[in-house]
């Protein structure tokens, strides 16, 4: 088959140049113009002394980066962001691993409907979801009203909304689909016999989970981390709407620099730092996923 197609391709050298250009020219040009170019411009702006700092023309400087990093408030927000993102990731993994197991091995004819609903949950507008949670968690929200009406609490719990708790809840529900699906994918690839083998060899469920299941789904977990943990660090709408001052995250800081203070240069520096960190993290997670896949 290859032999038949080679002479056709060799027949015109020009075709080999024209075809890739015809299929990929426009898409690639768009990516260069509106993805790569903005990134480079942002890098340039981050390295430039801004108008607010008396810069004229292009003045190469690293002060935007040093300012952003040395600001104690930013460090505090970075720590909060790390805490919230990690908590949300852990909550999701704790739910996702058993859920993926149930879907892959126990759900039977419910498997496809459950997956469809997970996809649907992801398709629902995130702003609608955030808004719905705000309604539930508020001081006069349904959870407080409900708990008060059955007499469990006498005062509404204020900490439900505008807190790290609220951001963690909203973020966990926003990304759950992306956490479950890769782990489910890894589970589907497992031959169910290994569990039986483990049981026959005398392993209890905990040993089976730790020594058989977790190693086999490790690549899926790393993909989940890649897809969810990184975006969690940059989320901006959830902390802005349900976080209050205690649930302030790095995305809000970027927004404050860029839109509130109009300081494009420091906003750009902050974005570049977040981009580099997320790229490093993504690279590590990707490598780990690959290595684990090769081993298993």
């Amino acid at each position: 088959m290859e032999a038949a197609s080679i002479p056709v391709r060799r027949s015109s050298r020009a075709k080999r140049l024209v075809q890739p250009l015809a299929f990929l020219g426009t898409p690639t040009a768009l990516l260069l113009a509106f993805f790569l170019a903005p990134m480079l411009v942002m890098l340039g702006v981050a390295l430039d002394r801004g108008l607010l700092d008396g810069g004229t023309g292009f003045n190469l400087t690293l002060t935007n980066f040093t300012d952003v990093i040395s600001d104690p408030l930013n460090r505090k927000v970075a720590l909060t962001t790390f805490e919230i993102a990690t908590a949300a990731m852990l909550v999701q993994l704790i739910v996702a691993v058993p859920l993926a197991y149930v879907i892959a091995f126990k759900a039977g004819r419910w498997q496809v409907p459950i997956l469809l609903f997970l996809v649907l949950a992801d398709e629902l507008n995130p702003m609608v979801r955030i808004y719905a949670w705000r309604m539930l968690l508020g001081r006069e929200g349904l959870i407080n009203e409900g708990l008060m009406s059955i007499g469990i609490i006498s005062q509404p719990i204020d900490a439900l909304l505008f807190s790290q708790f609220a951001v963690t809840v909203v973020l966990s529900t926003s990304y759950l689909t992306y956490t479950v699906i890769p782990i489910y994918g890894a589970m589907k690839a497992i031959d169910g016999n290994v569990f039986e083998a483990a049981r026959d060899l005398g392993a209890g469920w905990w040993t089976t989970t730790r020594r058989v299941l977790l190693p086999l789904i490790a690549p899926g977990i790393f993909i989940s981390l890649l897809l969810v943990y990184v975006p969690l660090f940059t989320d901006f709408a959830s902390p802005a709407l349900v976080g209050g001052t205690s649930g302030y995250m790095l995305g809000n800081v970027v927004n404050d620099y860029v839109l509130e203070a109009g300081d494009l240069n420091r906003g750009a520096a902050m974005s570049i730092i977040m981009l580099v960190l997320s790229a490093l993290f993504a690279l590590v997670a990707y490598r780990l996923a690959r290595i684990n896949r090769l081993e298993s």
């Binding site: 903005p38 990134m39 411009v41 975006p231 970027v254 494009l264 906003g267 974005s271 977040m274």
Partner: peptide, 12 residues
């Protein structure tokens, strides 16, 4: 992340 693409677009 979309936040970073959005900021880059705004600056661009």
């Amino acid at each position: 992340p979309w936040l970073i693409i959005g900021v880059a677009g705004l600056i661009f």
